[in-house]
Simulated assay, not measured.
Amino acid sequence: MTTYQVNGIELCAETFGDPADPAMLLIHGAGASMIWWDAELCTALAARGRFMIRYDQRDTGRSTSFPLGAPGYAMSDLAADALGLLDALGIERAHVVAQSMSGGTALILGVDHPSRVASLTFVSTSTGDEGLPPPSMPHLAEPDYDDPAAVEEYVVRAIEAEAAGHFDEAAARALVRQDMARARNYRASLTNHYAMTFDAPPYSSLARPVPVMPVLVMHGDADPLLPLPHGEAVRDAIPGSRFVVLRGMGHGLSAPYWKTFVDEVC
């Protein structure tokens, strides 16, 4: 893992594979650091001829943390961070894969910087349109952030609620403990992305008879956070996009679906 100076902040990133291969940039969802993209998955993608990049977005992991509840940045700043990281790595163009809320970040890259994007993949994301079905997950009470055990339990139970039956408690707990240990401010990681300014363009901005780059939309049909119609709305907003339904998958890209994911994005 290496820390890069980007846009006046520090971003921690890790790469896998041969830098001569086509680059693929992984952007995880709100509050999730790079390690939510499992190293085994990144290695499998690299074995398919991709130079893999995962990174801690601002306010996650070892990257710069901002004032709690008042981060002062926008989603467009997250997109600028992604471009700045590519610049720091000497990469002109990358396949961009975005999970959940970071679909908005990927959309900015595709609309405003199409020359830097070889393809776009949206995983478990949404257009955010009114009328889409609400989450069906149970409500989890916010933890006492001064109690690490309570925070750990809160995040583990959130993973369980999103998993739709594909829940490995030992793996989830290990992930959360590692994530907490790496974070500069874990409370900011869990909250600040929801407090930023959302200035992404509408998904219809990519709607053209032929997309400017290949677009893949992947969504689990058992997603309790963003039910399947959210993924269908992204598909419908981008004519020409390819839509893959992952049968039985919840919100997170769980291990039983890694092979399918690798096959589809490579």
Rank of each mutant, 00 (worst) to 15 (best):
A20F: 00
L85D: 07
S136K: 09
P256A: 11
Y73L: 12
V96E: 07
L41K: 01
A23S: 14
F198A: 06
R93P: 05
L246I: 10
R58N: 08
G252M: 11
A233S: 15
R116L: 00
Q5F: 00
C42Y: 02
V210D: 11
L45F: 01
M180Q: 15
G72I: 09
G69V: 05
G250C: 01
P229Y: 13
A94T: 03
S126L: 07
T197H: 02
A195E: 14
I159K: 06
T125F: 00
D147K: 01
A106D: 02
D199W: 04
R235F: 14
I108W: 04
A161C: 12
S119V: 09
T2N: 12
G72K: 08
L226P: 08
W36D: 12
A80H: 08
S33M: 13
A181Y: 08
S100F: 05
Y154R: 08
E92L: 04
P256Y: 10
G8N: 00
A233Q: 05
D18K: 04
E162G: 04
P239R: 03
I35D: 09
H230D: 00
V262Y: 03
C12V: 11
A188G: 13
R187V: 04
E169Q: 15
E130M: 12
V244H: 11
H139D: 14
Y257N: 05
R208A: 15
P67R: 09
M249C: 11
R182Y: 02
V117K: 06
L78S: 06
P227H: 09
L216I: 11
Y203A: 14
E169I: 08
V96F: 11
Y154H: 13
G90E: 05
I53H: 00
V117A: 12
D199A: 09
A172Y: 07
T197C: 00
A149N: 09
R242D: 07
S119D: 09
D263M: 03
S102A: 15
I53R: 00
A82W: 02
D87F: 05
A106W: 01
R187D: 08
M213Y: 03
W36A: 14
L86V: 02
S189F: 08
E160F: 00
A163Q: 05
M180H: 11
P211K: 01
A188T: 10
R173H: 05
I27M: 15
I27Y: 11
D129S: 15
L26E: 04
L26P: 02
T127R: 08
S126M: 07
L25M: 15
R48C: 10
F243W: 12
R50D: 06
P135K: 01
G49N: 05
Q99D: 05
Y145R: 01
T3W: 01
A161G: 11
H28T: 15
V244P: 05
A174K: 13
S100K: 06
M218H: 07
R157D: 14
P201L: 12
G84R: 01
T197I: 05
D236Y: 00
L253N: 09
D168P: 03
S254I: 04
D112Y: 03
A98K: 01
S76M: 02
L132D: 10
S205Q: 06
